[in-house]
């Protein structure tokens, strides 16, 4: 028996060594500390990078994260509702962009935008119905949807882009609010709407409950399936907004628009600290995650790292954060 203990004199239990003190912190405290340290380091790196604070770099950072950010906010809703991750949002972005360009060429923007929004939320609702009512596996459903959308788009577009007949006016594209690009303003609005939904509406609270325990929600007399359909519809609509903004900015649309957005959005959600197991998280956190990833990428770019390195380092950060997060279902 004694063999189990190599040390001859065990330390008294109450003694407070620095290591002991560290061990006594629970997972969330350690995480908070590491987060803070990381963000501080990032700030220093950003400020020390020449050109970071100059207008163009910052502007392009804000514009870029706005597109992915809309998707990430939708992804947050889906994740909190307990459905791990949606891998169809990138495809929804591309398809919505196609819809808005095609429709605006035919009958003008005023009709095209609501149509594209409706399209996005319908695509989400169908997936939500499959997942919420039939309890189909969310990853399989969303991957299948994504494949379906890419497959369906191919014969329609013939792998070419759709071009807008009437390009968006420059005055709209260059519009600024408090010095921020219009896309960023839209993104922040969506973020606030989503956070409002989560914190202050019955729907939002239901999302948390369903995400924490689907069975408990059912036994309590909530409508978990309806909540899940709602969450996916919102995610679809938010992705459609990203698609619309991309289409308007570039005056064209193609299925390449949403490519890779799923993964970047997932990274933002995870880095922000929304629980993969559902029931916990917030849109604001995802915003923080989005900013962190965005800043890292700009710093890397300005420091002269190549694209591949950017992906690699972003991946490492996501992995690190996921490893630090407490095990699910504690």
């Amino acid at each position: 028996m004694r063999k189990a203990i190599l040390r001859l004199v065990p330390p008294a239990m109450g003694s407070i060594t620095p290591l002991n003190r560290f061990r006594r912190l629970d997972g969330s405290q350690i995480r908070a500390i590491l987060h803070a340290v990381f963000i501080l380091a990032l700030m220093i790196a950003a400020l020390a990078t020449p050109g970071f604070l100059s207008g163009p770099a910052l502007q392009s950072l804000l514009t870029t994260i706005s597109f992915i950010g809309c998707v990430a906010v939708g992804m947050t809703l889906v994740t909190i509702s307990g459905n791990i991750l949606a891998l169809s949002l990138g495809a929804t972005v591309g398809a919505s962009a196609l819809v808005v360009i095609a429709a605006s060429n035919r009958s003008g923007l005023a009709e095209a935008i609501p149509l594209a929004l409706m399209f996005g939320s319908m695509v989400g609702a169908v997936q939500g119905a499959l997942i919420g009512c039939l309890r189909a596996n969310p990853i399989i459903v969303t991957i299948a949807t994504s494949v379906l959308i890419y497959g369906a788009a191919q014969p329609i577009t013939g792998n070419a882009a759709f071009y807008a007949v009437y390009p968006t006016s420059d005055s709209l594209l260059n519009a600024r609010l408090l010095g921020m690009p219009i896309e960023f303003v839209v993104f922040v609005a969506i973020l606030l709407i989503c956070q409002f939904l989560l914190s202050f509406t019955v729907f939002g609270r239901n999302v948390f409950m369903v995400g924490d325990s689907f069975n408990a929600a059912r036994a309590a007399g909530l409508r978990p399936w309806a909540t899940i359909i709602g969450a996916y519809s919102c995610a679809g609509a938010f992705s459609a907004i990203a698609g619309i903004m991309l289409a308007l900015r570039y005056g064209r649309a193609s299925m390449e628009f949403g490519l890779g957005y799923d993964y970047s959005a997932i990274a933002a959600v995870l880095v922000g600290g929304t629980a993969i197991s559902g029931g916990q998280g917030s849109a604001i956190r995802t915003f923080a995650g989005m900013m962190i990833i965005g800043i890292v990428q700009v710093v890397l770019l300005l420091q002269g790292f190549r694209q591949e390195w950017q992906y690699l380092i972003t991946g490492v950060i996501v992995l690190g954060v996921v490893l630090l997060s407490p095990p699910a279902g504690r």
């Binding site: 019955v202 239901n206 948390f208 409950m209 924490d212 929600a217 909530l222 029931g279």
Partner: peptide, 21 residues
């Protein structure tokens, strides 16, 4: 544990579950 409470949510949310309306 399996279909009763919502373990990750605060006690307050668990009390008002079906009465949010």
């Amino acid at each position: 544990a399996g279909e009763g409470i919502f373990p990750e949510l605060p006690v307050r949310d668990n009390l008002v579950v079906s009465k949010l309306a």
